[in-house]
């Protein structure tokens, strides 16, 4: 438990900054909805007339942004990106920082097995992502509710579904980040590699939105697993839930195998 608390304490500051960022972003984003809905049909038409690639980049994709949930669905993409950035950095750094900061020589000389270190760090990462996700969920509901006809109850179930999807994406990117840190040679670059992988899948996701005919590639990028239009219209896809959990578990298995045999670089 000592390691667990140390981990949480070490990331406390960064997590607080992220939380402030989330609340500010959700607040400001939903605040814009007021002016958008005030402008009526004009804005909606303007958005609809935008070229498809630009719509894809903005996260529109057939959402009716004149409704609260449609607008939130567009905006949701940015929350997913934030969650993905946070998760991939957190996962990679949780393992890599001990080597990067040369504290591995302290920790690994203690009577604690690598497996315990790994599982403790994993739980601390999961806890932080759950907190991150909870803050997104609560602030989303709080800021969206005033614009919904039925208040909070009208948006809660949709937001909960979207946020469950986000949590699965967070877990996936964090575990991939950990696997990169455990298997990669250079601990200083683990965070960069992890973020790089995340960005790559994000660009692939945009490419899939822009180009017709490559939908088959959707399973390669987590950003497509729980896209807002799909979730809002059809709910979370069972296939993608299974896939995301499967990738997460596979990444954790790689992490365990690699970390147990790893030569610490100090």
């Amino acid at each position: 438990m000592n390691l667990f608390w140390r981990e949480l304490k070490a990331s406390r500051k960064s997590l607080i900054i992220w939380i402030i960022g989330i609340v500010a972003m959700v607040g400001a984003g939903m605040g814009k909805f007021a002016s958008l809905s005030g402008s009526g049909e004009a804005m909606v038409e303007l958005m609809a007339d935008l070229p498809k690639p630009l719509q894809a980049v903005l996260g529109l994709n057939g959402l009716d942004i004149s409704t609260v949930m449609g607008y939130y669905g567009m905006f949701y993409l940015y929350l997913v990106i934030m969650g993905a950035v946070h998760a991939s950095m957190l996962g990679a750094n949780a393992l890599a920082k001990e080597e990067r900061d040369k504290t591995a020589e302290f920790l690994l000389a203690k009577p604690i097995s690598r497996m315990t270190i790994l599982l403790t760090k994993l739980s601390s990462v999961v806890v932080q992502m759950v907190i991150f996700n909870a803050v997104m969920t609560v602030s989303s509901i709080a800021f969206a509710a005033p614009y919904a006809d039925g208040g909070a109850s009208a948006v809660t179930s949709d937001i909960l579904r979207l946020m469950l999807g986000t949590l699965l994406i967070q877990l996936l990117f964090a575990s991939v980040g950990m696997a990169i840190a455990a298997a990669g040679r250079n601990p200083k670059r683990a965070g960069a590699w992890s973020a790089g992988v995340m960005l790559l899948t994000f660009f692939l996701s945009i490419a899939i939105d822009i180009r017709e005919g490559i939908e088959a590639l959707r399973f390669l990028t987590p950003f497509q697993y729980f896209a807002a239009p799909d979730v809002l219209n059809e709910g979370l896809s069972a296939a993608f839930i299974v896939l995301s959990i499967g990738v997460t578990l596979a990444a954790i298995a790689v992490t365990i195998a690699a970390y147990r045999r790893r030569d610490m670089q100090v």
């Binding site: 140390r6 070490a10 900061d101 040369k102 504290t103 020589e105 302290f106 000389a109 100090v266």
Partner: peptide, 8 residues
């Protein structure tokens, strides 16, 4: 250890 680095 030869070089002592500890948590910030």
């Amino acid at each position: 250890p030869s070089e002592v680095f500890y948590y910030d």
